[in-house]
Design a protein around this nucleic acid. Sequence first.
DNA 1: AATGCAATTGCAAATCGTTTGCAACTAAGA
DNA 2: TCTTAGTTGCAAACGATTTGCAATTGCATT
Lengths: 147, 147
Amino acid sequence: MKKPAPNLAPRKPDYEKALRKAGIRVTRPRKVILNILRETEDHPDALEIFRRAEQVDKSISLSTVYRTMKLLEEMGAIHRHAFEGGPSRFEQAGGDHHDHLIDIETGDVIEFRSDRIEQLQQEIARQLGYDIVHHRLELYGRRRRAE
Amino acid sequence: MKKPAPNLAPRKPDYEKALRKAGIRVTRPRKVILNILRETEDHPDALEIFRRAEQVDKSISLSTVYRTMKLLEEMGAIHRHAFEGGPSRFEQAGGDHHDHLIDIETGDVIEFRSDRIEQLQQEIARQLGYDIVHHRLELYGRRRRAE
DNA sequence: AATGCAATTGCAAATCGTTTGCAACTAAGA
DNA sequence: TCTTAGTTGCAAACGATTTGCAATTGCATT
């Protein structure tokens, strides 16, 4: 009998295990959605996740996608981003914190990180007498034309 | 005959004049809404503006509030903020740029400004090959308990 | 001040993204 | 396999916002 190779994949935490441990059922739709999230590099919205899920399991419903996104968000397994205008878009959690630059022409999302900005935010909040619970920094821009 | 005192009021631009100049009618509902916006210090949402408008002119409708907010936004007379969760909230334009700290317990909005952060954002965008069209920086926090 | 008409209104219905009630289904422990 | 609470798909409900439409109203013209 062949022994399964140890899972060495980076940035692909085993949420199924976490779900079971939390007493939450690992159902067929959830597996499908989890797989999609695990493999995606971009920031799809619920409808896009639904479309991708359909290709794997025709019977999945959009409401289940929404319910699962909410569940995973509450578990901390994913992050929800409400970029300007459009619907919420999701991203698997687990990587380190970053902010987003949104290409206003294509909708593409570029992740970036600035410790300096994070630090300044802390200072500002402290001066105003607040503790930051979370924050949102989004840059909306267009690609500079290489002339 | 008494000469009217010159209007020295700060941060209270005359949008009615601007509207007329742009060939946009200065109607009763618009006047009412403009006055509310001109006087408010906070960041009310459409419904709140509607409620305040009702007290002046019982016949105003919520859709007109929405239509007017959109119009004013397009004119650059107000800014729309879609803070987490709730509906859009508005603020008269004209002051200088600032970002927001939202009290997650009360919904209060505190304005702040950091040239350093603005500058860092520019640098980041430039390095990524983008020009920033606009950005959104929101800190969500709770007041530090003075123990 | 009266006229003419496009801009604007209030209303109700429509829209969009998302959530929810409910009866049928199913994961997973006994 | 049995049991049952957790989940599902569906359709209807939802909250914020937008829209079609007929009635109204600024305001440029007489």
